[in-house]
């Protein structure tokens, strides 16, 4: 099984520890993903702004870099969703179709491909789970409060494998944090307000750490937390699953 690691651009540049945790976690689980160095970005920032045209080069580049791997794993539900859902505008060559099937978020890869049932991880803290929207409603990593189907959450399933962790219950367990890519810049007032409201929910639940499957949500929340000088930390779920404190 040839697996590639796709580290989204903003994680590469601003949160290298998330990439490292993802890589180390996969290695510990017996998987040796390769990080093709020519990778850049899936193109989502441009496309979500309405500039699908301007994103084409990134799409083509992504396909060129990753087409020869069986799986592409990424610690971002949002980027995985973008490749799977919005690469529909490309010519549907075999390579494109293959990537649209096999670009997986880390949680999906752990549960559906590696089929892990347990983890050697320890993280003694009270944690609030932020269910990032593209993972939750795009990739269906969880049932979501809107739909009347059997309840499940891939991220919760994984967190439950970690020793010492305490998962807090939130009043609005799957409301958006307000990041939304360039929305954060185009509608800064609403974006920040949404983030503040999410944080307030986590604060009421007395969490020490907020985790999520997408670092972009956490970057936004962290920005607000730091502005508020809050002691609450943010950690990508890969960091918790790779933790052996």
């Amino acid at each position: 099984m040839k697996t590639a690691l796709f580290i989204p651009c903003y994680i590469d540049q601003f949160y290298p520890q998330v990439g490292i945790a993802t890589l180390q976690l996969l290695e510990r689980l017996g998987c040796e993903p390769h990080f093709p160095e020519a990778q850049t970005c899936c193109g989502q920032p441009m496309a979500n702004t309405g500039c699908e045209q301007e994103a084409q080069e990134s799409y083509q580049h992504f396909v060129k870099v990753f087409q020869h791997y069986d799986y592409v794993v990424t610690p971002s539900g949002s980027c995985a969703y973008h490749v799977r859902k919005h690469y529909d505008v490309l010519e549907q060559t075999e390579a494109v179709q293959h990537l649209r099937r096999n670009t997986l978020d880390l949680a999906e890869f752990l549960l559906q491909v590696l089929k892990i049932k347990s983890l050697d991880a320890r993280f003694p803290a009270r944690v609030g789970l932020h269910q990032s929207c593209h993972g939750l409603r795009g990739l269906r990593l969880g049932s979501g409060s809107e739909r009347n189907i059997k309840e499940y959450s891939a991220l919760r399933t994984l967190l439950n494998m970690v020793d010492g962790i305490e998962i807090a219950e939130l009043q609005r367990p799957d409301e958006c944090c307000g990041f939304g890519g360039t929305f954060a810049i185009q509608e800064p007032d609403i974006s920040v307000k949404m983030g503040k409201d999410r944080i307030a929910d986590h604060q009421r639940a007395a969490v020490e750490v907020i985790t999520a499957g997408d670092m972009s949500c956490l970057m936004h929340l962290e920005g607000i937390l730091r502005r508020q000088q809050s002691p609450i930390q943010v950690k990508h779920i890969a960091e918790i699953l790779n933790s052996q404190v």
Binding site: F14, Y15, P16, G19, F35, E37, I185, V192, M219, E222
Partner: peptide
């Protein structure tokens, strides 16, 4: 961005440099 949020602290090393 900075209207209501801090920017992430820039690390010295990107993931690819670490890799």
């Amino acid at each position: 961005w900075g209207k209501g949020r801090e920017l992430p602290p820039p690390p010295r090393q990107s993931f690819r440099e670490w890799y």
